[in-house]
Design a protein around this nucleic acid. Sequence first.
DNA 1: GTTATTCTAGAACATCTGCTAAAGAATGAG
DNA 2: CTCATTCTTTAGCAGATGTTCTAGAATAAC
Lengths: 182, 182
Amino acid sequence: MARACEFDQSAVLTSAMEAFRRGGFGSVSIRTLEDATGLKAGSIYNSFGDKQGLFRAAFAHYVEHVLRARIAEHAPPEAGLAGLRALFVSLMHEPDDGALGCLITNSAVEFGGSDAQPAAVHAALEILADLFGQRVPAAQSVKLLALYQGILVLVRAGWNKPALEAMVQAEFDQLDGEPNVA
Amino acid sequence: MARACEFDQSAVLTSAMEAFRRGGFGSVSIRTLEDATGLKAGSIYNSFGDKQGLFRAAFAHYVEHVLRARIAEHAPPEAGLAGLRALFVSLMHEPDDGALGCLITNSAVEFGGSDAQPAAVHAALEILADLFGQRVPAAQSVKLLALYQGILVLVRAGWNKPALEAMVQAEFDQLDGEPNVA
DNA sequence: GTTATTCTAGAACATCTGCTAAAGAATGAG
DNA sequence: CTCATTCTTTAGCAGATGTTCTAGAATAAC
């Protein structure tokens, strides 16, 4: 019917997502997003409405292509508790040393001070809570969720990774010795 | 020798601190800080050098008058493991529902994407790590640090507080049954 | 080929940002 | 009192911010 978009939507979302993971929503400007995505401001506003719209799309992209992909890779349904262990351990082996933080954790912190937390943040946390809840008793699953978020904070803060990994291993060793859900 | 400052430094730092706890460093402007502290921009720059200087002072104020005060209240040296339990439980009973987040956790996340994490953030995390390390075996103390940070993220995200508190109680019940350091 | 429609490019807008300069007000030393 | 010193206030600067507008380029239906 008319001219088609020239850019690759997925590539654009990936680079916007990385910019937001590094700096958060507030400190990444439209100019920075222009450089990161290769798009001009006009095209960004034409395609996503406004900065929030691009963020929402990038957040959804993160949930789908980073979080869900990570779960699928390390903790598919049949992997059980060992899958959860691998998922946790993988957090300490990101090449970026926390510079690319978790967009969910970072957003929970960044928007937690405002009146309304975006529903997307809560929904994303729910994905993890559900995953843990399926493989571990309820009391333990809340602990795993908190541990997961805490590890991401500490990795981003540059905390000693081997110590974190040893802690994860010990924690799952203990979980292995208890009755679980599956 | 000359005119004295009219404002109460501690009160100014407290209100600046609260503003930063709510919004982080980046999204709190000098105008907002003027309103929060009652000072005019000129006085702020005269007293603290620049925005970073005020933030540094507010961060130190937080460590001294919020973190250390919280430890002294709930977990004095003689309180042992029960003190740590009370410390953790207190995180779920803040009246602000996470709108006033922990300045340490929030800063770790906000500055984690930049080249150099401020040393003050790491030092503040060390305070908690040391506290835990004195009352619990090393492997457990790392877990408590991660749990502590994760709880703060989840509280700020509006997560179910009774579930978090039950998790904390269960975790410390288990710790009570193990040999500890003291 | 015309035309309607949608994308892209670039300049521009009003507002907000951190910060500074200049003038007035308070203080203590001489 | 004088005066040097320091605080407070106000106004303003240069640059960055999110956003919009306009002109131009590409496409597909007719």
